[in-house]
Design a protein around this nucleic acid. Structure first.
Lengths: 244, 244
DNA sequence: AAGTGGTCTAGACCACCTG
DNA sequence: AGGTGGTCTAGACCACTTT
């Protein structure tokens, strides 16, 4: 294994180590679920002292890219992004069980990205995008309508698959079929009165309040991969924050 | 200065130091804005090594209780909690300037705390609480209706002040008049259709969507100090999160 | 028993800020 | 110039997990 470290010499060593480790995760040399080399091995390989190596690892743990287990090792974290909506919506049935909602693709087409979407995904004006509309349901009750936009270039493989075979976990599909791994995301929450179309899809009364979540998902290389806007009934919504 | 450290001997030293430092901040021996002793002094006073003292300080910096400045020192952070609503609501006028909204106390009374409030504030059943209703406005436009509950015992001094003299920053008043300093908070967001009373106060249409923010504020000693529920028009609301 | 991360030491030298 | 936090070293010993 070659331990090249160009980077910027002005940066502290622990920063350069952090970047080097992050690059290995991004480059799939260290894969999700795998153990990374032990601290002792990293010390030897990079010629840094244990404290410095640990500080670099600390940062990646804080970033959510690594996970430590005393006595076992340090592992690349498996991301479960499909479940982030659990932060916002109560995806539970009456018994209080938490379940993965079903997913139904209502539409999939290839269009020129609207300028707002192109800007978010950093695509040149006029670039093509895959647009999908997806309905999420729990026990056949609609919970969320999602409008999803993907850069056509990276995700062209999706156009060859029957939408009935997409399954319930889209990000797993991105990874398998397109080699695109979602590493982080930004979300913006707003609320509005539901319009006629979404009222029909969500089977709620016209004008009822809905929560709108806009999400921009990024790969390990910090390039935007996906933009989506999701709407769900406000009475199914609850979000908790701690402020310091 | 006595450096007693009872605590739990099974805890790592850096944890015990963290707790000791946190206690000094809670006990106002280290006051907001003040520099704490230098790392070298803490090393000498506690007989720990520099790395261990730094780790304890690191934790309090991450908790937002301390702030470090290279070359200057480490300081107890001044909290500006009154501005947390800026996270959620657009407190801006047409020119985009960010302003502190005006505040108007609509009601202040002393009542037996309802059981939900008593539970949140960890008060015994039947304990008395101060209940206030406050309206926040920007350029005379209502933005937020707040229902606030305080343990009567700690906040009795508020009952002696004319509500017109409360000013726009409630947490500063708690500190000045009652010696109660808010150190952290938890907030839960939900949304609903506005009821008749709040529609009138907020001057919006009946049934329009409103965001509901419930906040429980804690002191440095981690005791709950205040519970409040705020409602504002959904179209003034926007919240942004990063997910990793 | 062997191997892993967790805690802790006792310094050194550097970068930055203040008087 | 003197003092502060920032970085880094080169270990030691402990707690926990796995074989």
């Amino acid at each position: 294994m070659s331990y090249s470290m160009p980077h910027d010499d002005r940066l502290p060593l622990y920063q350069r180590l952090r970047d080097e480790f992050a690059a290995r995760i991004a480059g799939q040399q260290w894969r999700p679920g795998d153990a990374i080399p032990t601290e002792a091995e990293l010390v030897k390989a990079f010629g840094a002292s244990i404290g410095t190596v640990r500080k670099a690892i600390d940062m990646l743990v804080a970033d959510g890219m690594l996970e430590r287990f005393q006595g076992r090792g340090t592992f690349v974290r498996r991301k479960r992004f499909e479940s982030t909506m659990f932060r916002f919506f109560r995806f539970q049935n009456e018994a209080g069980e938490r379940r993965i909602p079903q997913a139904r693709i209502l539409r999939r087409e290839c269009v020129v990205a609207p300028s707002a979407v192109a800007a978010a995904l950093r695509l040149p004006a006029g670039a093509e995008a895959i647009q999908m509309t997806r309905l999420r349901l729990l026990d056949d009750t609609p919970l969320l309508v999602e409008s999803i936009w993907l850069p056509r270039e990276r995700f062209a493989a999706l156009l060859d698959i029957d939408t009935h075979d997409f399954g319930d976990l889209l990000y797993a599909l991105y990874e398998e079929r397109c080699g695109q791994v979602v590493a982080s995301a930004e979300e913006t929450l707003t609320a509005e009165s539901v319009d006629a179309m979404h009222a029909r899809l969500l089977q709620i009364q016209a004008g009822a309040p809905v929560i709108v979540v806009e999400r921009l998902a990024y790969g390990y290389d910090r390039q935007p991969l996906e933009w989506r806007r999701s709407r769900g009934p406000a009475d199914q919504f609850r979000y908790h924050v701690e402020i310091r």
